[in-house]
Amino acid sequence: MTATAVPERNRPRSGGGLPPLQLTRGQRLRKTGTDTLVLTRRNFRHMVRDPFEPIIAITMPLVVVLLFGYVFGDVMAPPGTENYREFLVPAMLTMVMLYGIGGTASGIARDTARDVMSRFRSMPMSPVALLSARALADMARACLEVALLLLVGFAMGWRFEDGAGNALAAVGVLLLFRLALVWLGVLMGLVLPTADSVSMVVYPLTFPLSMLSTSFIPSTAMPDWLAPVTEWNPISMVVTATRDLFGNPSLPSDAWPAENALLMAVVVPVALMLLVTPLAVRRFRRISR
């Protein structure tokens, strides 16, 4: 029996426009597109209905900044920074981008748990839509977070001082950083066994990482052996580049990464993405084959 011999009468007759059995390349691409949108919408619903993780991810940096800005500020402000709160806002934005990785990883871990994944894979859908929908929803969330935190920044007295063009570029740097972390988060979600294990790994890892950067204190205030770690920390690069583009006070530093912060804030995330995206896709193919 050849495949084409299957009569169409065996297809469901109900209305609703079920797709033909065999899709052309273009139809398949369109299906991936609609599947992505359908799942993105679901991901938004998840964020709204189970808001614990997104709320923690945005309030932690907010609390840190409010504490540093209004409580410890006078002690912590590095000499030469006139407005420590303006100095903090780019750090807060970067920190929120970083913490988003927890949501990405746990979302992917939930979607690829065996029973859920079995249902998706037994259907004529495009499995890769699970990844693209996750990326799309999380980037949309990142845009919302940036907008929200800039408003908080305004309320704290923060301003961008170097023109709207550069301010937009600063937002671009932050979102590029987040995009790289989305793919790192996808990989983590595929590797870690459960969504619960994600939060056990992500926060203990990201919190020290954001502290061991020039987000809050200059590297000169660190022990000698730690200073280079701080300077080469990608978070420092993103924070410094964002400060420069916003025209906010930055730290005087003659370290190479600080002097080339913008370059590094583009190169490092792109390199990270080139590294982790193929790994994530390969891992995903293995479990979705």
Binding site: S14, G15, G16, G17, L18, P19, K31, T34, D35, V38, L39, R41, R42, R45, H46, R49, D50, R119, F120, M123, P124, M125
Partner: peptide, 22 residues
Amino acid sequence: LLTGRENLLMFGRLYGLDAAGA
């Protein structure tokens, strides 16, 4: 996290139905 109806609508779209059909 979705309602019964939302589940059926989402999976309907993923099965390839259009919005009205789902």
